[in-house]
Write a protein that binds this DNA or RNA. Structure first.
Lengths: 106, 106
DNA sequence: AATATATGCAACCGTTCGGTTTCACAAACA
DNA sequence: TGTTTGTGAAACCGAACGGTTGCATATATT
């Protein structure tokens, strides 16, 4: 089991769950009504999301409320940061040209 | 085959390849030397990255140069945007409180 | 022309994934 | 106390994943 954030958000259902509970904490049953699968399948997704700490569970009687750990989402943002430099900056055009020249020179 | 960006970046080797060619375009052979797998395995990764248009191939004689399609990376950024609102804004604390109250009220 | 180099593709293999069905268990309710 | 409700865990299944080995092909090099 790899179980890192990137593997967690790879599944479209899981991304939808994340978006759902980002608004407000929800129980597995409530979440499941939004999808075309069994409650158990949703439960498995929640387990994966919990394992990589993207989601936090809070028991309340017999109900369990799952809520998004927004902080963890920052890790994706941090990984993206290195590329943001490229697509934002003037960097892009000039340096890509230089890179290509260096390659062709050989 | 799902083959969307999120599935593409789920694999750590693929993320490493992306980071590598972000700096400058590279051939499959050159890329493969950076990893502990066969050239063919890298080739398969490149195929997946190409299919979801994260990477662009340019033939040059018998060599093929793969280069990152930085634009495509923005799509991840765009998906992340909805959560950035939450983790950045004052939004977070107050609204999470309200969301919880609304849940408990029932 | 013969050989070496750069590459992709197909077949195969063990593992993981995402789903279902069945069961177990604790909390709430009658 | 018996029943309903909310939930997780286990066993199973077909599909996809990530890797390897072997082969085919086109371009360079000798």
């Amino acid at each position: 089991m790899r179980r890192d954030i990137f593997q967690a958000i790879a599944d479209p259902t899981r991304r939808a769950i994340i978006a759902l509970i980002a608004v407000q904490a929800m129980t597995p049953n409530a979440i499941a009504t939004h999808f075309d699968t069994t409650r158990q399948a949703v439960s498995k997704h929640l387990r994966i999301l919990t394992e990589c700490e993207l989601v936090k569970a809070t028991q309340e009687g017999r109900e369990i409320h799952y809520q998004l750990e927004v902080q963890k989402m920052k890790e994706i943002d941090q990984w993206l940061a290195q590329f943001r430099k490229i697509w934002e900056g003037r960097f892009s055009e000039l340096d890509k040209l230089l890179a290509n020249m260096k390659t062709k020179k050989k």
